[in-house]
Amino acid sequence: MNRPFFKRLIFILSVIILVAFCVQLNDVAKPQLVNTQGRAFERATVTEIVRDNLQENGSRIGDQIVRLRLEDGSMAEANCPNGLLFGTVCEPGMQVIVMASRAGELTSCTVYSYDRSKAVFGFILFFCLLLAVVGGRKGVKSVLALALTFACFLFFFFPLMMHGVAPIVAAVVTACLVLSLTVWLICGTTRKALAAGLASLGGVVAAGVSAELFGQAAHLSGYNVTNIESLLFVAQNTNIDVGGLLFAGILFASLGAVLDIAMDVSAAVTELHAANSQNDRKTLFMSGMHVGQDVMGTMAATLILAVFGGSLGAWVIDYVYDLPLLQLLNSNGLDIVLMQGLSGGIGVILTVPFAASASSWLLLRKGA
């Protein structure tokens, strides 16, 4: 049996085993946390404003009453709430999403929101096309890697937690799977890919350990988050350990940045080795460190700025209310944001020596 055929056979068998495992893993019974019997979300078109809520001063008070044409062609009247989170300002011809509640022959309709489906799918398609056009063949592989990453979260990570696996353990296993698929799709089965994968895994684990140590030192846990009441209700009705979700989220948040810098360092060391195969391991390691040092600062800043941007609303409130520094430094919200940013940054920083070491060692192994 020749070697390429043997590799393909191993790959096909691995895929079959993984798919079979995921099918079995997704055989979970989700508890019905809310009663959705008789309730459905449907697309509809506004045909008439029966009663508007526009006041003489330009403000809107109360609900609009609108007439809608549902997807099946039937007509219905619906309330349109005057809210910032639900409802919208309806106009004739507007496409909306309607929450229809049916009880026997009675149907009650409420406008849930403007129909954003076309905008969402349009921008996703534009993003994928742009990535494919600019990135070429590797761009197409990147699109596939993103799709598989989302599938790993949906069909692997969530079911693992539903079966009672600790979130941090499920996150590490899922991260390994995501890293393996992404690196394999982008770089194939090369030493560069293996080095980047190993370094990424080390950086992600370092971020998770740093977050755990930070949480213990600052007495922070997954029970200090803002939506803990809803999560506790989920925990009471499922096998999910909501206390570990915070640290699992930090691990996933650092995954992209860690993989990026690991690939940069591994690719640079690989190119240097290809240009001059006489370089020894120390030279390759130091070259990888120099490349990583140039990228490390901007990558850590990128990660921290992403965390900052995600909680910008909370920062603005704290700034406007002019809260004292002692209160800010000891607030759960701010400390969790700091933990997320600093832990991810530590993972990015440690990825540099991991990637330089793995690359220089793998490239100079016998048979390389």
Results as ranks from 00 to 15, higher is better:
residue 100 A to T: 15
residue 49 I to H: 10
residue 278 Q to E: 09
residue 293 Q to M: 15
residue 341 G to V: 04
residue 51 R to T: 05
residue 293 Q to T: 13
residue 105 E to D: 08
residue 218 A to C: 12
residue 296 M to I: 11
residue 228 I to M: 11
residue 37 Q to M: 03
residue 309 G to N: 12
residue 118 K to Y: 07
residue 52 D to A: 08
residue 42 E to L: 14
residue 95 Q to N: 09
residue 357 S to W: 10
residue 186 I to T: 09
residue 191 R to T: 03
residue 53 N to D: 08
residue 146 L to A: 09
residue 49 I to G: 03
residue 184 W to H: 14
residue 63 D to A: 13
residue 291 V to G: 07
residue 70 L to Y: 05
residue 22 C to L: 11
residue 161 M to Q: 00
residue 93 G to D: 07
residue 58 G to P: 07
residue 212 E to H: 10
residue 158 F to Q: 01
residue 163 H to N: 07
residue 313 G to T: 15
residue 318 D to A: 15
residue 221 S to P: 02
residue 149 T to Q: 05
residue 276 N to V: 02
residue 29 A to F: 00
residue 127 F to H: 05
residue 286 M to E: 14
residue 7 K to D: 10
residue 357 S to C: 03
residue 133 V to P: 04
residue 99 M to H: 06
residue 113 S to E: 14
residue 118 K to A: 14
residue 272 L to K: 08
residue 227 N to R: 07
residue 332 N to R: 03
residue 304 I to K: 10
residue 9 L to G: 14
residue 364 L to P: 01
residue 12 I to R: 03
residue 81 P to R: 10
residue 346 I to Y: 00
residue 304 I to P: 07
residue 6 F to K: 15
residue 345 G to H: 03
residue 31 P to C: 06
residue 247 F to A: 06
residue 259 L to H: 03
residue 70 L to I: 08
residue 56 E to L: 13
residue 231 L to W: 00
residue 277 S to A: 13
residue 105 E to A: 12
residue 279 N to R: 10
residue 313 G to R: 15
residue 119 A to M: 12
residue 317 I to D: 15
residue 181 L to P: 06
residue 144 L to S: 09
residue 198 L to N: 01
residue 235 A to V: 12
residue 109 C to T: 11
residue 250 I to P: 02
residue 252 F to R: 09
residue 131 L to A: 14
residue 201 L to R: 03
residue 77 E to P: 06
residue 224 N to T: 05
residue 257 A to R: 04
residue 3 R to T: 07
residue 363 L to G: 00
residue 170 A to I: 01
residue 185 L to G: 14
residue 219 H to T: 12
residue 87 G to R: 06
residue 150 F to L: 11
residue 315 W to R: 12
residue 89 V to N: 10
residue 185 L to M: 14
residue 19 V to Q: 03
residue 92 P to Y: 08
residue 11 F to R: 07
residue 23 V to S: 07
residue 273 H to K: 03
residue 11 F to C: 13
residue 82 N to E: 06
residue 137 R to P: 06
